[in-house]
Amino acid sequence: MTETAPPLLEIEGLTFGFRNQSANLVDGVSLTLGRNETLCIVGESGCGKSVTALSLMGLLPPDAVRIDSGTVTFEGETIDAGDFARLSRLRGDRMAMIFQEPMTSLNPAFRIGNQITEAVRHHRGGTEAEARERALEALEKVGIPAARQRLDEYPHQLSGGMRQRVMIAMALVNDPSVLIADEPTTALDVTVQAQILDLIADLQTRSGMGAILITHDLGVVAQVATRVAVMYAGRIVEIGTAQEIFEDPQHPYTIGLMSSVPRLTGPRQRLSTVPGLVPTPDGMPEGCRFSTRCPFARPTCREVPKLAPVAGEHHVACHYAPLETRLEAG
C-alpha cells in the first residue's frame, strides 16, 4: 500500500452480533487493504475472523444477525455494512470469496463449467458460449490440466486440490479486485497447500488484486502475508506488517500464538499454549477481552484498550504496550 493511493477496501468500525445476544460477535473492526496486498487475519476458532469476511460479502443471515455499525468503502464507494443488497451486488463480481471445504463447496449436481458460467452470466450477461470461453480461460489460468474436458465433468470426478482450483477459477472469472479466502488450504495436503498459495500469489501479481486470507496457520501467514491482523474475541488486538508482527509481537495474545507453533530448530521443549478458552459471546469480560487469559492482566485492563501505534504501521491494543515498558513495570 502506498501512502498516496486510496486503499482498495476500507472497513471502518464494523460491529455486529447475533440478534438474540447483547454481546458483539465483531466489535469495532477497522481494516484496510491495498492493491496487490495480502492481508492475513489470524486468530483461533470463534474469534470472528470468518464472520468478518462473510459480512463483507453480505453473506450473514439477516434474520439472525444485527449489524450495529460500520461502513465498507470499496473502490471509492462507501456502503453501509448493514446494506446487504448493495454488498451482494459486489459479491462474485468485484469481490469474490473462496472457502475452506473444497470437497463440499461445489454443487454435486452440476457440471463444473456450468457452475462457473452461471457466475459469469449473472454479472456479465452474454451467451452461454461466451461465458464458457471465459470459464475455460479461468480454468486454464488456475492451472487445471485438460481444462476443456473438465468443463463437462462433475465435482466428484476431481481431487480436493483440483476442486479448490475450480473454486478459485470460479471466484476469479469476473476479475474481482478483492479475493477473500477463508482458510483455503486447511483441508488440503501440505504439498497441495503450497501450490494453492503460490497460485493465489501469482494471480495477484498478474492482476494487482488484493487478498484477504483468513487462517489460523501461522506458517501460511509467514509465507504469504504483506500485513497481518490478529483478532481475538471479535476485536483486532494487533495489526502491522508481517515483519513487524513476526519479529516484534507486542500483544500478549500474539506472543502466545507465536510460541504455540512447534519449531524444528533449537532445543526441544514443551509446546507452550495459551491457557484457557476464548470467552463466549455472553461471557465476555469487561474491558480487554483477553484479560481473563492474560498473564500480565492488571486492574486497568477493565478498560477497553485502544488500538494504538507502536512503530510504523504497527498498532496494538494493550495497556502495557510497548512490551519493554510492560516488562520493566511488572
Binding site: 460479502m57 453473506l59 451482494s88 451486488r89 459486489l90 459479491r91 462474485g92 463480481d93 469474490a96 470469496m97 472457502f99 471445504e101 463440499t104 463447496s105 461445489l106 454443487n107 454435486p108 452461471e118 457466475a119 449473472h122 454479472h123 473454486m167 470460479m170 471466484a171
Partner: peptide, 14 residues
C-alpha cells in the same frame, strides 16, 4: 446449510 449453497450465494446469484 450446505457449503455449495453458500458458494452459490457467494457468486452473487439471486
Amino acid at each position: 446449510k450446505s457449503d455449495y449453497v453458500r458458494t452459490a450465494r457467494a457468486k452473487g446469484l439471486y
